[in-house]
Nucleic acid binder design. Sequence first.
DNA 1: CATGAATGAGAATTCATTCAT
DNA 2: AATGAATGAATTCTCATTCAT
Lengths: 200, 200, 200, 200
Amino acid sequence: MPRTPQQSRSRATVDAIIEGALRCIGTSGMAGLTTKQIADKGGVSVGSIYEYFDNKEAIVDALYQRFVDDIVKMIQRETPRLLENEVEALIQAVLKNFGDLLQQNNQAYFHLAEQLLHTNTERYIAPVQDILGRFVMTYLMRHPKYLRVPNLDVMSYIMINSGIFVVIRQIAGDSGAITLEQIGHGFGRLIKHYIENERA
Amino acid sequence: MPRTPQQSRSRATVDAIIEGALRCIGTSGMAGLTTKQIADKGGVSVGSIYEYFDNKEAIVDALYQRFVDDIVKMIQRETPRLLENEVEALIQAVLKNFGDLLQQNNQAYFHLAEQLLHTNTERYIAPVQDILGRFVMTYLMRHPKYLRVPNLDVMSYIMINSGIFVVIRQIAGDSGAITLEQIGHGFGRLIKHYIENERA
Amino acid sequence: MPRTPQQSRSRATVDAIIEGALRCIGTSGMAGLTTKQIADKGGVSVGSIYEYFDNKEAIVDALYQRFVDDIVKMIQRETPRLLENEVEALIQAVLKNFGDLLQQNNQAYFHLAEQLLHTNTERYIAPVQDILGRFVMTYLMRHPKYLRVPNLDVMSYIMINSGIFVVIRQIAGDSGAITLEQIGHGFGRLIKHYIENERA
Amino acid sequence: MPRTPQQSRSRATVDAIIEGALRCIGTSGMAGLTTKQIADKGGVSVGSIYEYFDNKEAIVDALYQRFVDDIVKMIQRETPRLLENEVEALIQAVLKNFGDLLQQNNQAYFHLAEQLLHTNTERYIAPVQDILGRFVMTYLMRHPKYLRVPNLDVMSYIMINSGIFVVIRQIAGDSGAITLEQIGHGFGRLIKHYIENERA
DNA sequence: CATGAATGAGAATTCATTCAT
DNA sequence: AATGAATGAATTCTCATTCAT
């Protein structure tokens, strides 16, 4: 039913809705997210929301898409710089970039990321896995010495998911006195030792 | 206001409520957890819920307590066996045990664990951190060779949280073809190499 | 949170809610006044009630305001006529007017007045005291012979409250065979004698 | 269904219930009066309440009876003293006694009296009217000079109800700076003048 | 296209009353 | 007689969704 916006006014409305939703989430998290709130913060009417989205879930969906897009863009943008690093510094840089991204939009992305454990999130993560996979490939071609590390799939799965979760918890403030830098350093050395020792 | 159950009938009712809630969560996750559902699945009346719990949140609280208790008990029970292992096998065993626990109660614990990223869950995790910390101490006294590993606090924080999250995602079915065994193996080798290389 | 109605549709809905509430009260008193009932009798939905009122109490509040407004208007409207009367006839006329007002809206105002003894009603009564005080002033300037009556404050307090209560009881049907006319007559003579004898 | 208590244990339970209810009302008024509260404060079980009372209303009923009984007893007790007074002092004394009674039981009677405007209270008031009527008779035989006052029924109805209401409002604290003494004095002079002027 | 008033199903919570022990 | 756990109808309030204007 809802139309796909092609004209510019429509585009603006959709953006306003997304923006409104992001601001709501940044302010009060996913908990009390209502369509009325989104409409108010976005400066549109509730009716307009349903002009462009099937239901509230579709908005959240769009937010995830945008989140994922931003992650993908971030990696693409940083790739040249990242490729220069040895693996330890690489990990640290990636975690740092990811942490910074979560702080954007008044932490709206952080609140979205909090939901990542819930059902149906796989589809959002797939593109991230994709881009990361491609990045790893590129990285390996640039640093061929790492090519002979076994279990690359399992290990990158572990490291990606571990990294995401630990950074989120750190931002959530549950980490006590542990800083993002310490985490980045720890991850970096973990991986460095693994690679150096497992390389055939 | 709600009474603390001392008599056996009361005890049974409280158990029925907890059980009902666990079954609800096992069936449909935390999303659609309503007092009516809990009462129905538990075979009690809504009124009885409020005889023993201040509000719905208090029930969820009790579930978390129970979850945490079960984790603590599991570790205490397994400690003797676990102490025998070298670190690689140890990690694999712990992840395996944790994964098994999440499958209990029709995966109700899994759904609870999904909420762990949300606010106010720190208090539930504290006891787990406690028991794990104590376990690590015991383990280190038994295997003194690991004692000289630096950054024990940061690294155990990273490993504990990473392990929890990755296991949860695996159970959520988001891991593609990757198995719990592979994950355990990967984690094990990660840590093994780290320890052996960082040991002064 | 709830909007102030500016447009005509909103105005109509608010009126329908007030009207529904008045009819509920007229039918079954304050006891069984539920949001559902109000919505049904008013021909609106429960949701609409909360569009315009914070909670049920706010509706009752509005009813009191309306009641008080009507009392004030009634006195303002009748003032010219009332000023002509000697005190005995004046009292009779005022009681008569008040009694008539209570009979309006299927006695809804009567049921509201029944609540006047309860807490937090002072704020509603204040405007009535005000207008009555101003009326007395005007009356005294027109009939200066009454000016030298002592204890005007205490006596008017007594008479106003006595009058309100006795009229309410009469309408409640608890007065046996005593009529409003008899009551008006009695009050009138009481006051007449008091004034004539106490006047310095 | 509920039994009429004849044995002493039963009597004690009924008293405990009444006492519990009085204390509840004295503490928090009629608003949040629950059977559980009554049972707790009375030191009995909810079940026992229904052993002796049909329903909650029946308890409130009993409270009214007791209230009325106490008023009747008060008048009977005070009658010899009251008969000595001239009418002005009489009125003052009666209002004073009534005000004192309302203060008893931590103002529980006051809260009951607040309900007096509601439906179905006539049956409670009737005995009071009775005893007051009889008192007036006795008084008149002792002070025959008042006998020729016209409209005795209407006037005593007005004065009794006015007195009750004004005293209640005074205790409710809504009277501003006006004291019970001033009220008693005002009423006394009102009546004195009426009688002296209307006596044929 | 946009609006926002209206809707009503559904959620949490309360409490008078019952009844097995 | 007494107990108090259990009941569930009833109540207030929320919010995703619809639709007349």
